[in-house]
Amino acid sequence: MRTQVGIIGAGPAGLLLSHLLHLRGIASVVLEKRSRDYVERRVRAGVLEQGTVDTLVEAGVGARLLREGLPHHGIELRYGGAGHRIAFEKLVPGRSITVYGQQEVVKDLIAARLEAGGDVRFEVEDVALHGLEAEPYLTFGGERLDCDVIAGCDGFHGVSRPAVPDGVLRFFERDYPFAWLGVLAEVAPSSEELIYSQTERGFALHSMRSPTVSRFYLQVPPDATTGEWPDERIWDELRARLETVPGFTLTTGRIIEKGVTPMRGFVTEPMQYGRLYLAGDAAHIVPPTGAKGLNLAVADVRVLTEALDRFFSTGSADLLDGYSEACLKRVWRAQHFSWWMTTLLHTFDSDDDYGRRLQRSHLDYVTSSEAAATTLAENYVGLPW
């Protein structure tokens, strides 16, 4: 077999790349080790930046997103017994976020690729990368796929990044001393917008997936397990961390999913080697506080699509050669914003009274200064492409 671009991973990055390449007349094959059902059910991020929404709509895969997504024009920072709204419509006019689950994006992209006759293969075993320096090809399940370029979109634990020889890539990492317990519940949201709540008990986030399904997160110890958090304890702690302002009551309901997510930052430099180009979680991880993971993957794919279009249409590799440098500017901005949001809102065991007073001072500044609030807003909705 032969194709122009071999893509490893059928998450948002790999599927969107395949679709955007298809629109440019560039052939690709997507290889995914998981089943289609697993990929479509895997719950991940749900906050889409303005640029991500625009990309999906322009690519012709945004009809359901526009119909079912929940546009938000602000978020609330809740601390010290009061709520403070960061108003996007005032601070960054014309830009907002949309709440729409990552698994829904994946469903839309799979449907579009299959409708267009795209080659997306699920439950593919033993994928391996070869010839990355000059003549790349992939082997899997006893078959061989020759290609001009390989795109590694297979996540942090995938096979793409480890295929690069030792000593070529540099890794920058930061682990945070806590994790997030994520909960999906069959209950109408208690707020029309996301609530980021900072308390002495720890951080909590109230989000949503639809008018009838809510998403919650609790700051927990890094070694926490879901078995330690029965439903009753989760609701008690969410109430303690969210019902901190007068008149707010948390609506509870049946919990249908829970999981613990470690908090870490990770960046690979460069994001390419030979004819291999890494995108999304294969190249970088951000703590979820700033809602940047999926959006960074889309940004990578946009850059890579333009570079591959130039390469296949003109033979010029100049944009491909500059792929990593172009992506990393945005990656490090998102890393900083995610770190900033995390340190602004979480409780650190190592903090003394001095550290806690600094955190409160910073929160007061962000919620009272239009300049500081604008910085938060423009990063949250996504910087222009």
Rank of each mutant, 00 (worst) to 15 (best):
V120N: 06
V159E: 01
E123S: 13
P177K: 09
P177G: 11
P136S: 12
P162D: 08
R144A: 14
A134E: 15
V187K: 12
D175C: 06
Q103L: 01
R170G: 15
Y137N: 04
D146R: 11
V164W: 08
E115C: 10
L109D: 04
F156A: 03
H130T: 11
R121S: 10
D119F: 08
V187S: 15
K107V: 11
R174V: 00
L184D: 14
E186H: 14
E133F: 06
L132V: 11
G117I: 14
L181R: 07
V183M: 12
A179Y: 02
G118D: 08
L169M: 14
I110S: 12
G158K: 02
L138M: 09
A116W: 10
F156Q: 03
E133I: 07
P165T: 14
A112I: 04
G131N: 10
D108Q: 13
E135F: 08
A134H: 14
E115L: 12
V183W: 07
G141N: 08
A116D: 11
F172C: 04
V106H: 01
L109I: 02
W180K: 02
A163Y: 07
L114H: 13
D126P: 01
G142P: 14
F122I: 10
D146E: 14
A116C: 11
F171N: 08
Q102D: 01
A112W: 05
E115W: 04
P136C: 12
D126Q: 13
G155H: 00
P162Y: 05
I110P: 09
L109S: 04
G117W: 14
F171R: 13
W180R: 02
D154G: 00
V127S: 02
G155E: 00
V159M: 00
E104A: 14
A128H: 07
V124G: 05
C147E: 03
R170H: 13
P177R: 05
R170M: 13
D175A: 13
L129H: 07
D166P: 02
A163F: 02
C147R: 01
F122V: 09
A163R: 09
A128G: 07
G182R: 01
D146Y: 10
G152Q: 04
D108E: 15
E133R: 15
D175E: 15
G155D: 00
V168Y: 12
V105Y: 00
P136M: 12
V124L: 03
Q103A: 01
L129G: 11
V168R: 13
L181M: 12
A179G: 04
P162C: 10
E115R: 15
E133K: 15
P177F: 09
D126W: 01
A151G: 09
E104V: 00
L129W: 04
L109T: 03
D154F: 03
A112L: 05
G167L: 15
V187C: 15
F172H: 15
F140E: 05
S160F: 04
V183T: 09
G131V: 11
H157F: 01
E135P: 00
E143P: 00
A151T: 06
R121M: 08
P165V: 13
Q102F: 00
L169F: 14
V164M: 11
I150K: 06
D175V: 10
Q103M: 02
V105P: 02
P165G: 12
R170N: 14
Y176T: 08
R113P: 08
C153L: 02
E115Y: 05
E133M: 13
G155M: 00
G118V: 08
V105H: 01
V183E: 07
